[in-house]
Write a protein that binds this DNA or RNA. Structure first.
Length: 569
RNA sequence: CGGGGCGUAGCGCAGCCCGGUAGCGCGCCUGCUUUGGGAGCAGGAUGUCGGAGGUUCAAAUCCUCUCGCCCCGACCA
């Protein structure tokens, strides 16, 4: 295509609204424009990248035996009420009404709609397994949309749903998708890692996230240096302590700790390391109940684990007023000793501790030499803390290390959560009515494009991996000389005829402008046609990635480009 | 929802503290020259100063309310 016929409004300066690299470069390269917070228009260049990703996804989904459908964006509230998610999904759900005041939502995900389709159309085990996918715009009323396409309120997603006769077959479907995702992201030219993950609002029994590795990622992952285990930090299990303290028990003693409200204060005041202290976090569950969670001083709470333990839909640290009424002291002095009428649970690390320090439920006072069982009781010792770099792996594969990632894909084994709620059944081989066992599988298409930029850019702009590049070759005539014009035109048609995606910068711009825009837009190859080269009978092939340039006879350009495109295509 | 910040020409910003009727750079238009890394000269167009109220002889500037956007947090796939 020719630049003069495309809307590619590149920006010389950084837009003020964009912080992260991918957002900034997408705006500057003229790929997207914002319409409202978290809502974007895809301009031709941005759309081409989206289409490339979609194409790879379609090929691999089809290859994996999934079939493409298109579900509606607008869904009636009744379906969402059947699964309880009309309430449970909360403010995240975009809701609206038709002229008859009937309630609808804009689909943030499509389990309800697809399960409804299944129960209407599928009768027999003979029709299974079934795996339907779509590439569709989703709507989620994010608390805080940000980072351009990375977290929008409207975004393009590939979502797939599998239906199987039983758990075992469902696991096979899950495994197939897991493998397809590996192929998809590998084909996209991304460095990524699959990690074990929490199931969140979607629910289910097993889940993996596909994380593109980038320092700017919003997610923290933990992985074994040498082994295969990797998990989202939200999910990463901490193995129980292997050795307990064998110190003799000392008598408990209340001491004054004026103004010492934080772990840091108390440790400094008592001259002890935080590993000798047990902090007491008071959480308020959605039900209103307050519970106490005990953690070693240097450990951090993992609220997902705590939620799971209490079976709570939601929880938050208790506010200062509640803390005061429960612990008889301001925030910072709560402790398990003498706490009445409240559930107390301890992280397993506390099990290994003896003679530790806790808050005394009294302003400016702590207990030293406290011991569980003797001085207070807890209902259980369980894994409640956030795993961190340096922790032993729960699978025994050495120590864990931390990395940042961008979640671009997520696969869930759902089980029968939705099929039961919506009575999606089929007749099995024995003639028995049976609930379909489901899985669901998502890929953020726009987010994948953004992640690719986060991972592949330099100070001048984007460096597209070949499979995602909006154009393979950026053809840059550098003067208006007749010979330049003629050679450029010939190359343009030859490349097009060879099936190469080529962008011809036919604008009447100076060379410097074209070079800078080309570097910004990030096509992997630039062909520079100029008088200097032509007198020697060559044009220049420049590699965006390395900046290296080499002279090439015009007649050799097509074969050279084809040769370099084919290994990665 | 809490904290911070910003809305002035297409984009990036100054002006606001201390009120006097809007400016800079880039871009855009015209002409000439230029043409291998964001050209030079000359001329030109472009603003409900986010919106609404108020104070004042006078408001981009002060006050009140409101809307939008960005960042941090809570939260979230």
């Amino acid at each position: 295509m020719r630049t003069s016929q495309l809307l590619i409004p590149t920006l010389r300066e950084d837009p003020g609204e964009a912080e992260v690299v991918s957002h900034r470069l997408m705006l500057r390269a003229g790929m997207i424009r914002k319409v409202a917070a978290g809502i974007y228009t895809y301009l031709p260049l941005g759309l081409r990248v989206i289409r490339k990703i979609e194409h790879i996804i379609r090929e691999e989904m089809n290859r994996a035996g999934a079939q493409e459908v298109l579900l509606p964006i607008l869904a009636p509230a009744e379906l969402w009420k059947e699964t309880g998610r009309w309430e449970y999904y909360g403010k995240e759900l975009f809701r609206c009404h038709d002229r008859h005041e009937r309630a609808f939502c804009l689909g943030p995900t499509h389990e309800e709609v697809i399960t409804d389709l299944f129960r209407r159309e599928v009768r027999s085990y003979r029709q299974l397994p079934l795996n339907c996918y779509q590439i569709q715009t989703k709507f989620r009323d994010e608390i805080r949309p940000r980072f351009g396409l990375m977290r929008g309120r409207e975004f393009i997603m590939k979502d797939a749903y599998s239906f199987d006769v039983d758990e075992e077959h469902a696991k096979r479907s899950y495994q197939k998708m897991y493998e397809a995702y590996h192929t998809i992201f590998t084909r996209c030219g991304l460095r990524f890692r699959a990690v074990e993950a929490d199931t969140g609002l979607i629910g289910g029994t097993m889940s993996h996230e596909f994380m593109v590795l980038a320092d700017t990622g919003e997610e923290t992952i933990l992985y074994e240096e040498t082994g295969p285990y990797a998990a989202n930090v939200e999910q990463a299990a901490v193995p129980p302590p292997h050795a307990c303290s064998d110190e003799p028990l000392q008598p408990i003693e209340k001491i004054s700790t004026p103004q010492a409200k934080t772990v840091e204060d108390v440790c400094a005041y008592l001259k002890i390391p935080p590993t000798r202290l047990v902090k007491t976090l008071l959480y308020q569950l959605k039900t209103g109940d307050v519970v106490a969670v005990l953690l070693r001083g240097d450990h951090e709470a993992n609220e997902i684990k705590i939620k799971r333990y209490f079976g709570a839909a939601d929880l938050a640290l208790a506010d200062p007023k509640t803390v005061q009424s429960v612990s008889n002291a301001p925030v910072g002095f709560a402790g398990p000793v003498g706490l009445r009428n409240i559930r107390i649970v301890a992280d397993q690390a506390v099990y290994a501790m003896r003679n530790f320090v806790v808050g005394a439920n009294e302003t400016d006072a702590h207990f030293i030499n406290t011991n569980w069982d003797r001085d207070f009781t807890v209902e259980a010792f369980v894994d409640l803390r956030r795993a961190k770099s340096g922790d032993p792996s729960p699978r025994g594969g050495g120590r864990l290390r931390e990395a940042k990632g961008i979640e671009v894909g997520h696969v869930f084994l759902l089980g029968t959560k939705y099929s039961q709620a919506m009575k999606a059944t089929f007749l099995d081989q024995a003639g028995q009515e049976s609930f379909a066992v489901m899985g669901c599988y998502g890929i953020g298409v726009g987010r994948t494009a953004a992640a690719a930029i986060e991972q592949n850019h330099d100070g001048k702009g984007i460096i597209w991996p070949v499979p995602l590049a909006p154009f393979h070759v950026h053809l840059l005539p550098v003067s208006r000389a007749e010979a330049v014009e003629r050679t450029t035109r010939k190359l343009y048609h030859a490349l097009q005829d060879a099936g190469v995606d080529v962008l011809w910068d036919d604008r009447d711009e100076r060379a410097g402008v074209k070079f800078n825009d080309a570097d910004l837009i990030g096509a992997p190859f630039q062909i520079i046609v100029g008088d200097k080269g032509l007198v020697k009978g060559t044009v220049d092939l420049k590699y965006r990635q390395t900046g290296q340039t080499r002279g090439l006879a015009p007649n050799d350009v097509v074969s050279s480009i084809l040769h370099q495109l084919s290994p990665s295509q």
